[in-house]
């Protein structure tokens, strides 16, 4: 984490003004989202009934926490706006967003596959769903060739059926069997 943050700090120091402004803009969006979300949650927490037995009810602590979060987001948002104005250039936002997504396309594809895997898992069962997930993700990361295909099939078999057996037989942890294999 440190190496990453150091690298990002160093990169931040060297980045041109427009790039810094775009980064701050992205953070500003996050401050606004967290700020608005915390205001809403603070209000929802305030609606919880107060306690007869204590000065603070169930809603007081979350109300306090989300109010503090809203305050912190407000301060950060003001700072971000000032930084963006100081940098003075906020052009090429759409292109920068496209570039950002492009760099992370495999990450997002991996996440998409994870979501699909989690959705299918209860129905297809651990072994089958995991085999397919591992095979597709390994080929996606490594690229498709005869060598990677054979390697991926072997690895997918070991870590789907093998892990299922290991957890069931050794640790007595039973992973989802799936509707197809139930009964």
């Amino acid at each position: 984490m440190t190496s990453g943050s150091e690298k990002s700090a160093a990169a931040g120091a060297l980045a041109p003004a427009a790039s810094r402004a775009r980064t701050e803009f992205a953070r500003l969006v996050s401050y606004v989202v967290f700020g608005l979300g915390s205001v809403y949650l603070s209000m929802r927490a305030g609606e919880l009934p107060t306690s007869r037995w204590e000065p603070l009810g169930a809603g007081s602590f979350p109300q306090l926490v989300f109010a503090v979060l809203a305050g912190l987001c407000l301060i950060s948002a003001i700072r971000a706006v000032m930084d963006i104005r100081k940098a003075g250039q906020l052009d090429g936002l759409a292109a920068a967003l496209c570039g950002w997504v492009k760099v992370r396309r495999i990450s997002f594809a991996l996440f998409g596959l994870l979501v699909a895997y989690l959705a299918v898992l209860p129905f297809a069962g651990f072994s089958l769903a995991t085999f397919v997930f591992l095979l597709i993700t390994q080929l996606m990361i490594a690229g498709i060739s005869k060598k990677t295909f054979i390697q991926s099939v072997v690895a997918a078999l070991i870590f789907s059926v093998g892990l299922n057996l290991l957890f069931a037989e050794v640790f007595n942890v039973f992973l989802p069997r799936g509707v197809l294999f139930a009964g």
């Binding site: 991996l110 994870l114 989690l118 997930f133 390994q138 490594a142 690895a155 992973l175």
Partner: peptide, 17 residues
Amino acid sequence: QFIVPTVMICCVIGAFA
């Protein structure tokens, strides 16, 4: 390509177990 998906599966098992 072997480590990332396999570790992800281990995370899923950890969360489920």
